[in-house]
Design a protein around this nucleic acid. Structure first.
Ligand SMILES: Nc1ncnc2c1ncn2[C@H]1C[C@H](O)[C@@H](COP(=O)(O)OP(=O)(O)OP(=O)(O)O)O1
Ligand SMILES: [Mg+2]
Ligand SMILES: [Mg+2]
Length: 794
DNA sequence: ATACATACC
DNA sequence: TACTGGTATGTAT
């Protein structure tokens, strides 16, 4: 048979594989050593840009590997731009130790490979950057200018958003329940993987997502405590009860954190934001004996950043004042923004962007180099603009299970693992709502080399039981074997949407479309990109009944229309009810409930309408800070067309430059299809783009077990599982415990792989596409002007 | 529609 | 000896 995957020689014995690995290892070690010493001497201080310029063929490789090595070290150590402040930690030492510990492993090799891949992309981008720098950016400046203006108009300083995050959550719970652990460095997880560590351990460089055996090298005294996910889930419920008192519609982003919009609460109680926030944290402490940290700001993005500032057991407030805000943002490392991770940071750094202030200054370049969605996101970051929408409107889009195990290659063994996954997934699906089905199945597999792949398939019908899950999964697996794996995963998506069911009940089996199509008036500008709802109605899977087997699909009950989002208490109730579904509990379960049952709670807390999408931007008038005025924008008028422009001086586009640009535009711009094309609009990432954010949800899950065969890994897994799984699997293993956890993480940033640069302008096709994106951006709001300005001369 | 990369807890 | 698991999304093909 053909061997599509290079992995190991499937026919060879393990010892030979090891020998091979050793060879690779030493070879790489040599390479690293030789390059290392030279680098510091030669280029330590130079900017990437200069380095790039002076490169000649002879030293190119060397420089490249040097640079890569540096980023590789960061990647592996996870300390690159560390989000959480780890002051007092000897970063160099930690990096070196981790690097040495990993060097040579298959894991390391794979990280190296990935790192090289991104380095390559970065180099390509740098080349474009060089070209762009020399090109005429006037026109682009105008576009960016209008985008900035648009965002300024969307800026909402009337709300008071609080982000609360528990301190070293899992570890704190363990310490609380075992006083013996207090004051000593400890981490939750296994020798294979840690979920978190207490602050004592962090002083040694121990962190989340670090394997325990490496953590032990950093800190030999480190105490490892297995993960007890269910316990954390329980504690989380207690914490959330407190959240509900201050904002019944709080948006939980994970077991240990949530956003609260306390604007209403402030209005009612006439208290100060900091005062209320302290109160919330005190409440949490009294209820759980655990400390938390909080951030208070005019939007979610900033609140999140603020909650980290005085992290262990502290809070920080960013006043609702545009000047204060811009000042705060100015020197803020881009890495602090949720959504900008390791890779994106690297990319931006190469463009000489390290802070949000840099980002604003270089927005035009960013506009030229990134795709619209990424640009939108980055533009918001640069201005400190963000969503203030806080609601429990999370809805799952996929559900899956994956497990790591000791290398397996026998088809029979792999099939067995797959079967276990299928059974597990069936259980999770069952817990999920009552019933959950999906039409798209995706098989994930990780080779022993750590290379990851996914293979998906859309099915002719919705499936949910283990037999079907296995059947389709196996078809995929069969087509890919043989190979040696360390992980297999199964995930179902294209799920039947509960909301749709609630709305249409059985009707969904027929084309719907009509009603609800309330034209979104004006496609109002929203910072939250969840266009979901709008789009949902249109693309609802139900419009196209796939159902072949009616019998299966028809098992739906006609649920009552539920246009409002339930309050937290409703959800809690549901959770208890449903029980298992801890994981999914999110809002999902809430949708099941009817309003009737909640009436009581509704009186206790104000019930915010949830259908935000149909509401105006900030419904509630702030008590706090009404400054729409304060954030007034300075404008200047174009002498040619009399249009007003916002004078975002931050953009560093001098007025005269703008004028020059304008006159150029007035004179030569080619006319554009005013229509901007529907395509532009729709795409939209439109809608002005923002994809910002958020949603909320909650999460949970658990897991069980040890996966790896070995036994221990930290793991996490989805909730449900634990209960069951426990056992199971593994061959081996150890431990026993089940540890696992898994939290369901809610995605909150929209930005996509910022890595993807915009279509090459050099290409013939390039420019036109670029123009399209221009429209997309402009259309959102300010567009009128751009279009008119451009079309003016004709 | 599928695959991959990135991100977050 | 040991390098997780669950969910979402932007982009490319
Ligand atoms: N990479 C991960 N894999 C699995 N579980 C994780 C991971 N990161 C975090 N968790 C779990 C354990 C954490 O206690 C919990 C909350 O995460 P997070 O808030 O980021 O850190 P933390 O609460 O442990 O410390 P901090 O004080 O910095 O908030 O989620
Ligand atoms: Mg936390
Ligand atoms: Mg957290």
């Amino acid at each position: 048979m053909e061997h599509k995957y290079e992995t190991d020689n499937l026919d060879l014995l393990d010892n030979k594989e090891e020998a091979k690995a050793l060879d690779d290892l030493s070879a790489f070690a040599d390479l690293c050593n030789s390059t290392n010493s030279k680098r510091q001497i030669d280029f330590s201080g130079d900017s990437e840009e200069n380095v790039t310029k002076q490169m000649n063929h002879d030293i190119e490789k060397e420089i490249k590997s040097n640079r890569d090595n540096e980023s590789l070290r960061d990647r592996i150590s996870g300390l690159a731009a560390t989000k959480a402040g780890m002051q007092g930690v000897d970063k160099e030492k930690v990096k070196r130790l981790i690097y040495e510990s990993s060097k040579g492993s298959a894991f390391f090799q794979n990280e190296k490979k990935k790192d090289e891949a991104t380095s390559e992309k970065i180099n390509e981008m740098l080349q474009k950057y060089e070209t762009i720098k020399k090109s005429d950016l006037l026109r682009d400046s105008i576009i960016v200018e209008s985008k900035v203006k648009e965002l300024e108009q969307l800026r909402d300083m009337t709300q008071t958003i609080v982000h609360i995050d528990m301190d070293a959550f899992f570890a704190a719970v363990e310490e609380r329940d075992d006083p013996t652990l207090r004051g000593k460095p400890m981490a939750v997880g296994s020798m294979s993987m840690l979920t978190t560590a207490n602050y004592e351990a962090r002083k040694f460089g121990v962190r989340s997502a670090m394997p325990g055996f490496i953590a032990k090298r950093l800190c030999p005294q480190l105490i490892l405590v297995p993960c007890h996910f269910e316990k954390y889930t329980e504690v989380s419920k207690e914490v959330q009860k407190v959240f509900a008192k201050y904002d019944p519609q709080f948006a939980a982003m994970s077991l240990d954190e949530a956003y609260l919009n306390i604007t209403d609460y402030l209005n009612r109680t006439k208290q100060q934001p900091a005062e209320v926030t302290q109160q919330i944290r005190d409440d949490i402490f009294h209820a759980t004996q655990l400390t938390s940290s909080a951030g208070i700001a005019p939007n979610k993005m900033l609140a999140k950043i603020c909650s980290d500032i005085n992290k262990p057991n502290g809070q920080y407030q960013l006043e609702n004042d545009r000047q204060v805000l811009m000042n705060f943002i100015k020197d803020l490392s881009i890495r602090k923004i949720s959504g900008i991770g390791r890779v994106t940071e690297r990319i931006l750094n190469v463009l000489e962007i390290h802070t949000c202030g840099d980002l604003l200054e270089k927005l035009v370049i960013v506009y030229k180099l990134f795709k619209p969605a990424s640009f939108n996101f980055l533009a918001q970051v640069a201005l400190g603009v963000g969503s203030t929408d806080v609601a429990m409107d999370w809805n799952r889009k996929s559900i899956g299970v994956e497990r790591t195990f000791p290398p397996l290659k026998k088809p029979q063994d792999l099939r067995e693992k797959l079967r276990e996954l299928a059974v597990h997934l069936e259980n999770d699906l069952a817990k999920e709502n009552l019933e959950a089905f999906g039409r798209n199945i995706s098989l994930k597999f990780k080779l022993t080399s750590f290379e990851l792949f996914t293979r998906a398939k859309t099915l002719p019908k919705y499936i949910h039981n283990a037999d079907d899950l296995y059947k389709y999964g196996e078809q995929i697996l069969k087509a890919e074997m043989p190979f040696s794996l360390r992980l297999l995963g199964l995930r179902l998506s294209a799920l039947r949407d509960r909301n749709e069911e609630l709305k249409y009940g059985v009707k969904k089996y027929f084309p719907v479309k009509e009603e609800n199509q309330e034209e979104n008036p004006q496609k109002k500008l929203r910072l939250d990109t969840q266009d979901s709802e709008d789009d949902m109605l249109q693309e609802s899977t139900f419009n196209t009944p796939i159902a072949s087997d009616s019998s299966e699909n028809m098992s739906y009950t006609d649920t009552p229309d539920n246009s409002e989002c339930p309050t937290y208490l409703e959800k809690l109730t549901d959770m208890n009810h449903i029980q298992s579904a801890s994981e999914s509990s999110k809002c999902a379960s809430s949708n099941i409930k009817t309003k009737a049952s909640t009436s009581q709670e509704d009186n206790l807390f104000e019930h915010k309408p949830t259908n935000k999408i149909l509401q105006p931007k900030s419904p509630q008038l702030s008590a706090t800070t009404p400054n729409k005025e304060a954030s007034a924008i300075v404008h200047w008028e174009c002498p040619i067309c009399d249009q007003k422009f916002s004078n975002s001086s931050e953009l560093r586009i001098e007025t005269h430059t703008k004028r020059t640009t304008l006159s150029n535009v007035h004179k030569k711009s080619p006319g554009r299809p005013k229509s901007t094309s529907k395509s532009g609009v729709n795409n939209t990432s439109g809608n002005s783009g923002n994809h910002n954010n958020t949603s909320s949800g909650n999460s949970t899950s658990s897991n069980g077990g040890n996966s790896t065969s070995n036994g221990n890994s930290t793991q996490s897994s989805n909730s449900t599982s634990n209960s069951n799984s426990t056992n199971t699997n593994n061959t081996s293993s150890t431990s026993g415990g089940d540890q696992s956890t898994t939290t369901t993480q809610i995605r909150e940033t929209p930005s996509g792989p910022v890595l993807t640069p915009a279509p090459s302008p050099t290409n013939s096709a390039g420019p036109s596409r670029q123009i399209e994106s221009i429209y997309q951006i402009a259309v959102g709001s300010v567009l009128a002007f751009v279009v008119s300005a451009i079309a003016f001369s004709f």
